[in-house]
Design a protein around this nucleic acid. Structure first.
Lengths: 353, 353
DNA sequence: GTGAAAGCGCTAACAT
DNA sequence: ATGTTAGCGCTTTCAC
């Protein structure tokens, strides 16, 4: 049992080892210029005294807190939980800790994050904006270590890690059209909301429709207040009540997709026979819905890593003056039974054809 | 636009307002003994200079970091994401920030958390133990601000916020028996794993079976490596291959429940007609599975609040000597269609009877 | 009610 | 390769 873990200071270790504080610090930071025997001596004292660094003191002296903030709408969306998990892993590789901030898609909270919050605390911020306007993002506080996640792409004043929302939406829509769908509705995609991916995903859908010579029909655009499971039911009902109901629904995310599938089931509509359903984000859940949900899968690990790398680059000496970088992470379409009836994944699927 | 947000120190504010640093600090902390006009003056300076407190310095001087750690297996389980969300809310009410630590159910990581980690950083720790043994928990480092979440209940040396796992399992099992089920299997419940709730949940099941005069059949205990959706399939297959397959499956959590439902569907087994399924945790997803999943719902908000309250009590002067407190949060059974076929929730459900 | 001075525990020049 | 000296920006006795 190493040490009784009281308040052991670095200077105590130095005294115990018979060296100066600087030497202890050198050992702690793996500085090269420490003789092997000194190092051993210090490490022994470190262990017997049970020294644990005081991060507040280190942060104050070094002007580096070792924290980065990750601001996301909320952990209750598995997509963001997943993202947070990846960011924490990527950050840990550089000895950074992650402070998760839930913005709840509130403009005020997002604004607070962008402007650095009320306190001086983090070395950098990763923000997934949702409610705040692009204009405000590019305007304010472009000087601080801020990486934006998202698909807007218009912000030239800070680092940006994005996905190609238009291409992804085009791909999933094209897949739907390939399956013979011509009346493709959407749930949760709101082209007027400019902070999140809505507009771009809608654009991708329109491009695919255009390319196939199909009309873009505005009555197929079902809005929801929040893009979550419970909200999907009313939107599905709305679409089913249309004179000519859709034969496919592209959902803003898998949460909405899951809710839509549930409602279609309640209404006795066969998926995909009568209506195909697809989503975005490829939540793990989507491999287990009835039927499994076709979805766009983002490279979340790459996304997280790039965000952290950008912050790292900027926090190095001289990094603050680096020009803003924009990088795009990859995606792929995970095709499942919600859009292709006869996908023969195994012997059982064939029975249901 | 208040201040150009450079490095404004408290002493700068003091100089600008023509007062001492102590007075500025008093204003910041809402100390009563500040005259109204002084306060106004200081607040004006605070605003025009755009002062933001340096939390590292505050932490160093005050010996309080303002952080608590929440150590959970991982955010990818929606149950823990939800818990984290509640803890963050409860902590925010006391101006605490939450540092989320993913233990991945690793003994070493849990041990590191219990022993305070390598660094002096947080004011307290909330740990949901999973892999570490009870013995180790009560042994080591009982002196630090540690609140244990969980159902073990045996640890007398630190604060403990638990659920009544036995009662909850008894309730859901009794419900299953009421529905006429006599062959109740379980997936993911591993009585030999003593850190998580397995043993207690199994005990509750046994109690309910005993009370109904039904036999406890060990072949109905299907283990899994990890209690997650993908692992459920093999367990379901195992149970279906039994000479006398079960007519109900009680899953360790809703993740397993979701995976079990998916596999039963693939195998063409009707739920609940042939096999009823129930879970624990009441994930939001479980209201949208096919069919919706009966589950035990814990009072997560209450759980989070109590954990934070306990930490708060201990971090107050003299709080360290408080005797360990054990408190139990409530639960209720959310009954859904996976266990009762004819539950007439709406007009459509009746058709499927 | 407000001010002056002494640290909190660490890092970072600079010196040796 | 190791020691010396100043702070980092805040809180906190203790005077006044």
């Amino acid at each position: 049992m190493p040490g009784s873990s009281g308040r052991v200071r670095l200077s105590d270790v130095a005294a115990h080892a018979g060296v100066s504080a600087k030497t202890v610090s050198n050992v702690l930071h793996n500085h090269p210029h420490v003789s092997a025997e000194t190092r051993a001596k210090v490490e022994a004292s470190l262990a017997t005294l049970g020294y644990r660094v005081n991060l507040s003191a280190r942060a104050l002296a070094s002007r580096q807190t070792g924290f980065i903030a990750l601001a996301i709408p909320g952990l209750d969306n598995p997509y963001y939980a997943q993202l947070a998990s990846h960011v924490m892993d990527a950050a840990a590789e550089h000895d950074w800790m992650v402070l998760i901030e839930q913005t709840r898609s509130s403009v005020d909270l997002e604004r607070a994050v962008v402007s650095g919050g009320g306190a001086r605390l983090v070395d950098g911020v990763i923000l997934q904006p949702d409610a705040i306007s692009q204009a405000e993002l590019s305007d304010r506080f472009a000087h601080q270590n801020l990486v934006l996640i998202g698909e807007g792409g218009a912000t030239a004043s800070s680092d940006h890690v994005t996905t190609d929302a238009v291409a992804a939406a085009r791909a999933v829509a094209a897949h739907l059209i390939e399956q013979g769908r011509t009346r493709i509705a959407t749930i949760g995609i709101q082209p007027q909301m400019r902070a999140n991916a809505s507009e771009l995903r809608y654009r991708g859908l329109c491009q695919a429709l255009d390319a196939a010579g199909l009309p873009v029909r505005s009555e197929y655009l079902a809005p929801v207040d929040r893009t979550r499971r419970p909200e999907a039911a009313a939107a599905v009902d709305h679409l089913l009540a249309l004179p000519e109901p859709p034969d496919a629904i592209l959902c803003f995310n898998d949460l909405v997709g899951s809710g839509a599938l549930a409602r279609l089931r309640e209404r006795g509509i066969a998926v995909p026979t009568e209506i195909a359903v697809a989503g975005f984000d490829d939540n793990e859940e989507s491999r287990f819905t009835a039927p499994p949900l076709t979805s766009v899968s983002w490279d979340l690990e790459g996304l997280a890593r790039r965000c952290v790398d950008r912050l790292l680059a900027r926090s190095r000496p001289g990094g603050a003056d680096l020009p803003p970088v924009r990088s795009v992470v990859s995606h792929r379409l995970a095709v499942r039974e919600s859009t292709v009836g006869q996908l023969a994944v195994d012997e059982d699927a064939a029975l249901q054809a």
